[in-house]
Nucleic acid binder design. Structure first.
Length: 200
DNA sequence: ATGTCGATTTGCT
DNA sequence: GCAAATCGACATA
């Protein structure tokens, strides 16, 4: 299944909610000295910039940590969550418009052996990449990837060309953002219906 | 199958 | 200090 690198224009046009939905079915690839790994994006969430109370950039908050969210669409935003998990986001929109898509789950394609080693799960298991903290570990995404361009050759996204039917996309509220008040109810979480590789 | 809890660091108050 | 875009270990049923 040979995909094409996603057109840079994808990251710049349209709303982040649409982009989160469209990223389902696309393939996230990492390639560096530790090996090459790739996996289908099966679950995403949209974080819609300064107006979204769940977003790290809410109200224009701009710190060392959130700085990559303000970069041009097509940049990686990787941050440490709960002091131990790296979470990977795809930054979208123009510079200084801080929107991002959190990638919450993947279905492995290439490099399953490497993923097992990185995750320290020697035996067959379905939990390799079914969560936002797990998938970064499996693909070797640490904070050194923070701010990297997705148009470069260490981490990028390929468009498989597969078009998902509307009824094969499951929609719901985002996870773990109870602090966001009413915005916690927004239907901005997307996953491939029936796919086993989604978070719990 | 479901529930509780500890880990561990960053960024705010 | 405290809560956080989480995970895995362990307990109980």
């Amino acid at each position: 299944m040979q995909g094409r690198v996603l057109d840079p224009a994808f990251y710049l046009e349209g709303s982040v909610v649409d982009q989160a939905r469209q990223l389902l079915g696309m393939v996230l690839v990492t390639a560096f000295h530790g090996g090459r790994t790739s996996a289908v994006i099966t679950e995403t969430e949209a974080y819609a910039g300064v107006a979204d109370r769940a977003s790290h950039a809410h109200g224009g908050r701009r710190t060392r940590r959130t700085e990559p969210m303000y970069a041009e669409g097509g940049t990686a935003y990787v941050y440490l969550c709960y002091g131990m998990h790296h979470l990977f986001n795809v930054v979208t929109n123009r510079r200084d418009t801080p929107e991002a898509v959190l990638v919450r789950a993947l279905e492995p394609i290439e490099g399953v052996g490497v993923m097992r080693v990185r995750r320290n799960l020697p035996n067959g298991t379905r939990h390799l990449t079914s969560g936002p903290g797990k998938l970064t570990k499996a693909l070797g995404i640490s904070r050194s990837f923070n701010g990297k361009s997705l148009l470069d050759d260490e981490i990028w996204i390929e468009n498989s060309g597969m078009k998902l039917a509307k009824n094969s996309i499951e929609v719901g509220p985002r996870i773990g953002i109870d602090y966001a008040g009413e915005d916690a109810l927004l239907p901005w979480r997307f996953s491939i219906r029936g796919n086993r590789w989604v978070s719990k």
